[in-house]
Amino acid sequence: MKASLRAFRALLSVVFSDRHTGACFIFLAILCLACMFAEFFAPYPFAEQNLAIGASAPCAEHIFGTDILGRDVFTRILYGGRISFAVGFAATAVAVLIGACYGMVSALSPRRVDSAMMRLVDIAYALPFTILVILLMIIFGRSLWLIFVAIGAVEWLTMARIVRGMTLDIKSRQFVLASEALGQGFWGIMRLHILPNLIGTILVCATLTVPSVMLLESFLSFLGLGVQAPLPSWGTLVKEGAEYMLDAPWMLVFPAFFFSATLYCLNRVGAKLSAADLRRFSK
């Protein structure tokens, strides 16, 4: 308990070491909370329609305007954030974790095992995603966790390849060979050389995967998997907004802003953390 508290405090001190990153962190925190407790913060129920006003521009009652069914865009962004945060973070975390471990194990294994593991990745790449999702839905029915499985099924592959390539490169570098010669064991090398060199890239990949995953979720709902209407998600909000971008730009601009701002802040915080990690590990 105490240890984790200390870790948390250390994390905060890193994040707040410059103002910009601190602001990003606060933005993320507030957004996360607001989405989690959307019932409390949202001015309207997410499905409440007003067909007569249709897509109307931002005004005092609807600060971000309304969509074609006259639903409050601000409310829908908050509710949509729930599923998108969950999918964005959890699915990404799982995909990245699996990918990173797989890649590392593959690179550190004997050549034959490495080759076999990578051919498996090739196969998984080539399976058509649309059909995979439709089949998964037949077998498991439609459920929320299936979204994570479906997204995980594609997103870990690139991660695995990147991590494996880097690990291969690092483990054959002079300094690693030298420290091996000096009697450093497997775990020591992992801790001292491989992980610190990987962590930055893994974090970059993770932050870049988040928006792709959020958009992928809207493709899944195209196939019938994912949140069911009238519940929104950021992916579907952006996609629908794009349809109306000329006539009701607020339907695209606001969801897209939150979408991009989240990624920007995430990236900023991630970069800061990875830099801090690097220092701690290498010194």
């Binding site: 870049l208 928006p211 952006v238 971008m245 979408f259 991009s260 920007y264």
Partner: peptide, 18 residues
């Protein structure tokens, strides 16, 4: 850096029509 982030956030179905 920000530009490349924008590249990731802006999906093709927004960039293309614009």
């Amino acid at each position: 850096d920000a530009a490349s982030l924008a590249g990731i956030c802006l999906p093709a179905f927004v960039v293309g029509p614009v």
